[in-house]
Design a protein around this nucleic acid. Structure first.
Lengths: 350, 350
DNA sequence: GTGAATCGAGATAGCGCTTTCCCGCTGATA
DNA sequence: TATCAGCGGGAAAGCGCTATCTCGATTCAC
């Protein structure tokens, strides 16, 4: 095992006490000079403290500050899966905004398990974060149903701020995404370019986001004149492989005249695309595919994927701003989505 | 602004003191029952404390524990860009392993800016994390050169553990990836299936990881009999768009008989693929493309991308284990890579 | 039966900070 | 000259915990 070469003598980090002594001032003065205080401190003294701090390479102990101040500079972020581009984009937004506010982000992954989620909220509460952001909806039929709400409420009662991203299940601040409206608009446009017979691949039982999107899609079809039979709605995991499986399932049952398959999110759609290809068919031509989210990847798959753009980073940004009480963040209403037609839905001339 | 409906009376979280009082025992006993201690505590007392804690919904203040114990349960993770699949996969690994060790991960993004990186290290040091993991290499020609090393060394001196992922620039513990060997193997295999004339798209000036991969690729070609002219090595940003630009550049200068373009990482390769298509050419057929990393996406692009697999999640896991002093993690040597041939390099019969 | 261990609960001294509170000082006011 | 606000530095009381220390009550050996 390699040792660092730059010096080996083990020492504890300099404390404020050390700085004060080195500067020849009191602890109070040192504290006041280093971390803004309402009280002024003589320039001469301040300079001495700053110099001493630099000399000792002092770095304030955030835990100690937290204890003394009774408040932290931490934001806790809970996502289903960090490697999923949907969540990593949101996370990037949260981190960027947090950095801007000089806050520190701690991150955890629920792996889509409600029990884990509850557990994590409990643990993270110990950090006394200023804000807790939860992204990714849960099954509505959830054994821990009330418990999470209780826990979050308790957290808010003790001064924290909860913000949910695109999961309107509790009565907390929420960054609302136009899931329903976006899917509806998508459906209309697809009918507009000639598609009539649709199928849908959606997430597991009762995932709220998925449900909203499917519902919106249905509504759009109903209004515009497309058909979606119930047996053409397949459920699968809310992941790339889920999308693959769902599409394979549809193909195996004969495709049955289906012209376009709408997957409730892009990672599923991308999986679906691959399933189409693996079945020896040509996506776009033999069967069109559309997704939802507009994750970065979908520009680069072939055919490029038609989808509904959700400004994911912005979601993360907004969540934090909302938590911090930024009025504009809340007054902006639901986050706008936008249909993006690409080659995966070339259209049908009838 | 919505208020939570579940109860509004604002209160501070229960403290250990509250629990002790509620249970009718001393602070010390409460502490001992709730958080493991070497000392035993009477079952009767322990139960009373546990009950009281549950009743008050007590959650220990981690900051206070950190101050009292003089050690935290935090891991700090620095990556270049959270939304980049390379880093988000690594992050997922770190978080998973951390969770397993009951540690908490705080995350920050350097955005590939050395100044920012240094700044972040300074800030995060205030957290007194047990471990600091840095992923993503920096330009070798870096204005802050020594400063980062100094800072990290100081951190280690004060008892922390630094682990670098795939950036062998300092003398700290490092998770080494077989960048050179992997690229060399790739080159050999590509020559083996008939390619002779190559081009390379690599990252900005002096990025270590990129440099190693290119060097390995060169060595492989030299050994197996492929050619790579210096004017066919283009530099671009280490991102999807960089890859796109790099490929466009190559195409604009006439492709010049190039049969295969190797991009130093997958996100660049994916961008390159799109550039080929946008130029009206067929990737795989008109020009073959290969990447490095095997990020999840590349299975789903068309043609599927030939690449060198790096077990990214495992990298993150290993980094943490290494930091925690897991012997096996360090004795395993460099992380193995594996060439994965896919349709983007169908081969040439000569 | 006595002294030495042993046990385990409670009191308390910190941990590294912030923030009162106190107090000597200066300068304005009368 | 006496009075009284500021002003600003220092002492010290916490913040919510852990860990050492104290000390009475048991237990045990001989």
């Amino acid at each position: 095992m390699t040792e660092t070469g730059i010096g080996t003598s083990r020492s504890t980090p300099a404390t404020l006490h050390d700085v004060a002594r080195e500067a020849g001032v009191s602890l109070a003065t040192a504290s006041r000079s280093l971390n803004g205080s309402t009280r002024k401190v003589n320039d001469e003294y301040r300079k001495r403290v700053l110099d001493a701090a630099a000399r000792l390479d002092y770095s304030p102990n955030l835990s100690a500050q937290a204890v003394a101040r009774g408040t932290t500079t931490t934001v806790a972020l809970l996502v289903a899966d960090i490697a999923d581009p949907y969540f990593s984009s949101i996370a990037a937004g949260v981190v960027a905004e947090a950095d801007h506010e000089r806050l520190i982000v701690t991150m955890a992954a629920t792996e889509r398990d409600p029990e884990r989620e509850l557990e994590l909220v409990r643990t993270l509460r110990g950090q006394r974060p200023r804000v807790m952001i939860l992204a990714g909806s849960r099954p509505t039929s959830d054994p821990t149903e009330g418990a999470l709400g209780e826990e979050l409420a308790a957290y808010e009662r003790s001064g924290g701020r909860v913000v949910l991203i695109s999961r309107n299940e509790f009565d907390f601040r929420t960054v609302i995404v136009e899931n329903t409206a976006g899917a509806e608009a998508l459906a209309r446009e697809l009918v507009g370019i000639g598609y009539r017979r649709f199928a849908v691949i959606t997430g597991g039982e009762g995932l709220r986001t998925a449900a909203d999107r499917v519902e919106g899609f249905r509504a759009g079809l109903a209004a515009a004149g497309g058909t979606l039979d119930d047996e053409h709605v397949v459920r699968a995991a809310f992941t790339r492989d889920g999308g693959y499986d769902g599409m394979r399932q549809l193909i195996e049952s004969g495709l049955d005249g289906i012209e376009l398959v709408f997957a409730a999110n892009d990672v599923m759609a991308v999986g679906a695309l691959s399933a189409v290809r693996d079945a020896g068919l040509t996506p776009g031509t033999d069967v069109a595919v559309a997704g939802f989210d507009d994750i970065p990847t979908v520009r680069d798959v072939t055919p490029a994927l038609t989808t509904v753009r959700v400004p994911l980073e912005e979601l993360g940004r907004r969540a934090l701003r909302l938590a911090l009480g930024d009025e504009s963040a809340s007054s902006e209403g639901a986050v706008r989505t936008e249909v993006v037609l690409r080659e995966s839905t070339p259209g049908i001339t009838r």
